[in-house]
Design a protein around this nucleic acid. Sequence first.
DNA 1: ATAAAAACAGAACGATTGTTCGGTAAAATA
DNA 2: TATTTTACCGAACAATCGTTCTGTTTTTAT
Lengths: 206, 206
Amino acid sequence: MASAEIIPAPEAATRKGEMQRQRILEASAGQFLRQGYAAASVRDIADAAGIGTSTLYHYFASKEDLLVAVHEAGLASIRAALLAAIEGVEEPWARLEAACVAHLQALLEGGLIFQAVMRELPSVFDADALDRIRATRDNYERIFQRLLDDLALPRGTDRHELRLMLLGSLNWAFTWYRPGRSTPEELARTFVGFLRQGLDLGGDTP
Amino acid sequence: MASAEIIPAPEAATRKGEMQRQRILEASAGQFLRQGYAAASVRDIADAAGIGTSTLYHYFASKEDLLVAVHEAGLASIRAALLAAIEGVEEPWARLEAACVAHLQALLEGGLIFQAVMRELPSVFDADALDRIRATRDNYERIFQRLLDDLALPRGTDRHELRLMLLGSLNWAFTWYRPGRSTPEELARTFVGFLRQGLDLGGDTP
DNA sequence: ATAAAAACAGAACGATTGTTCGGTAAAATA
DNA sequence: TATTTTACCGAACAATCGTTCTGTTTTTAT
């Protein structure tokens, strides 16, 4: 016994298995993050979770299943954090900015599961797994699509490409970001500001 | 370690080994691209190159060496293509635009080695290998740094963060780009246009 | 308390990994 | 020509891979 309960459980009495499942998810996210999916071994993940390899298969059917689970859990959490961040914000550009801040904070400073989500994709696992991941991802990015739609932009502005540019610049940040300089929040505001400077033509603000 | 002779030899009569080396480089770039570095096996690469696995080790000391060689060859080529693209273009914004077009074309439509370059990084190989890769990469991005420096921008504009945003949006494109819609050239011009719209001060400023 | 179910571990499976070895064919050098 | 390099391969190496098997302990429900 004497297992360290680092994670503050929201509910009191969840079945033990559920907590372990979360533990494994966290451990595999950490390994995927540090080594990538292909290079991370099931044994490493099990060790990081403090269990045997065979026990891991009691919770997840395969390594691939583990990846899908990490993606789904991570994107669900990011989605929730993002929706909470833009709640109550009315002005369209401010809403977009708040969303970008939340997105980048999750990507750069969020939990392991958060961070692991945005860095996999290229590998060609099973077609089913990839479809499930992509579906979850598309669903998430649709939030940004709606935020862009609410913006008052110059005639002829391609909102689709604008969204791809903005999200791309944010998503790539993990390749160069190092703590200590600008914070994720500052970076997100700066990036949105660059675009807003030339595209904003609505509302107030002197 | 191996001496870096990354120049594709414009001379006609190269030794047979040099052509094979290039062949292997191309094959491994293709595998890295399709499966990622960790998942791509040396046997797959050798098969794709049409040689036995042991022959491959006659040209490269290790799989890691192969990755470094692909990076160096790819970045050297992209660099050359980019410098050629901006040559003769005088106006700063036009120069930047030409560079972005060349960059994105190489990333999305260029040879296998081109494309493979920008999609690896996270894995933690040997520290030496990673340093060599990063050095080559930084050297390349320094071109963009100079292009940004030549721009006349509003006071207080952070050129460093502007470069990170622009390159990020371009580099992320391979995750969503599919041929048939906008061409890489159109995309690059659009992205630069979004920024220019708000940041361009025209000719020169006091 | 008892029985069923869930959680767990150790050892082993076959397959595949990167790499090396012994030796042969081709090419370059003399 | 003879001889030294270079190019090349098939087989094998130890290590590790994802996964499964057999069985035991712990938790849960009755």
